[in-house]
C-alpha cells in the first residue's frame, strides 16, 4: 500500500510540475478571444454601443459587462455569432430588427450643417458646408450615430434596397419574409383575373411599413 501511495504522489507531483512549466513556456500572448471578437465586430468605431470603440467593446464582452446585443449595426446575426463564440445563451427573438439598414438623407431637409459628416466614424457621408449631404450606400453600415445629429431630423435608417446582384434563392424549408412593396403594387394592378397560379389564392398579407424619410429610391437610380 505504501508503494501505491508513494507512486501516486510522485505521479501527481510530476504532472503538476509539467503543467506549471507549460503554463510558463507555452503561454499564449494576449487574449486570442479578444482578437477573435474584434474581428467579428464591424470595426467602424461608431460608438453606438456606448463604449469608445470596437476594441473596448470586445474587452467588455469578455468581461461580461455588456450583453451580446450591444452592437446595433451588427444586428441579430452578429449577436448570434458573439453568443456562440462566448458560449452564452441567446434568444434570437430578443433582438428586434434583423434587417440590415442604412442611413438615408432627405434632401429637402438638409441644411448643409456638416454635423452628420463630422459624426460619421467611417466617412460614409459626403458633402461640404452649405452643400447637400448624401450617404454613400456602399460604405454605410447602419450604425445610426448620425440620426441624432441632424438638427432637422432629415436622416433616417431605411432597409437596404434590394437588387438582383444581392438576391439569391432562399434555403429550402425556411419561410422567407414577404417581398418588397413594389412587387405587390404590380401584382395587384396588373394581374389579370382568372389566371391564378395554381390553386393558391392571391390574398397575401400587406407589406410591412418601412421606415422612410423620403419616397423610396433605388440604388443606381439616376437623379
Amino acid at each position: 500500500m505504501l508503494t501505491a501511495i508513494l507512486s501516486l504522489t510522485l505521479l501527481g507531483a510530476g504532472f503538476g510540475l509539467l503543467l506549471r512549466l507549460s503554463a510558463r513556456w507555452l503561454a499564449v500572448e494576449g487574449n486570442p478571444l479578444q482578437t477573435e471578437l474584434e474581428a467579428l465586430l464591424p470595426g467602424s468605431q461608431c460608438g453606438q454601443c456606448g463604449l469608445a470603440g470596437c476594441r473596448q467593446a470586445a474587452e467588455a464582452l469578455i468581461e461580461g459587462t455588456v450583453p451580446v446585443t450591444v452592437c446595433p449595426p451588427g444586428g441579430r446575426a452578429l449577436a448570434q455569432t458573439l453568443a456562440e463564440t462566448l458560449g452564452v445563451p441567446f434568444d434570437p427573438a430578443a433582438v428586434a430588427d434583423p434587417e440590415p439598414r442604412i442611413a438615408m438623407i432627405n434632401e429637402a431637409a438638409c441644411l448643409g450643417c456638416m454635423r452628420c459628416i463630422q459624426k460619421c466614424s467611417i466617412d460614409a457621408i459626403v458633402g461640404a458646408n452649405k452643400q447637400m449631404h448624401t450617404v454613400l450606400n456602399e460604405v454605410c453600415n447602419g450604425c445610426g450615430s448620425c440620426v441624432a445629429e441632424c438638427p432637422t431630423g432629415g436622416i433616417a435608417l431605411v432597409a437596404v434596397p434590394q437588387s438582383v446582384e444581392t438576391w439569391h434563392w432562399h434555403k429550402p424549408g425556411r419561410t422567407p419574409p414577404p417581398p418588397p412593396a413594389d412587387f405587390w403594387h404590380w401584382r395587384r394592378l396588373r394581374f389579370r383575373p382568372g389566371h391564378t397560379l395554381g390553386n393558391r389564392p392571391i390574398n397575401h398579407p400587406p407589406p410591412p411599413a418601412l421606415l422612410r424619410a423620403q419616397p423610396q429610391t433605388h440604388a443606381g437610380d439616376r437623379p
Binding site: 437596404v160 432562399h170 429550402p172 422567407p176 417581398p179
Partner: peptide, 11 residues
C-alpha cells in the same frame, strides 16, 4: 442584406 423574397422553390 437579406434578399429572400420568393416562396416558390427553385427548379
Amino acid at each position: 442584406m437579406t434578399a429572400e423574397t420568393i416562396t416558390e422553390p427553385s427548379g
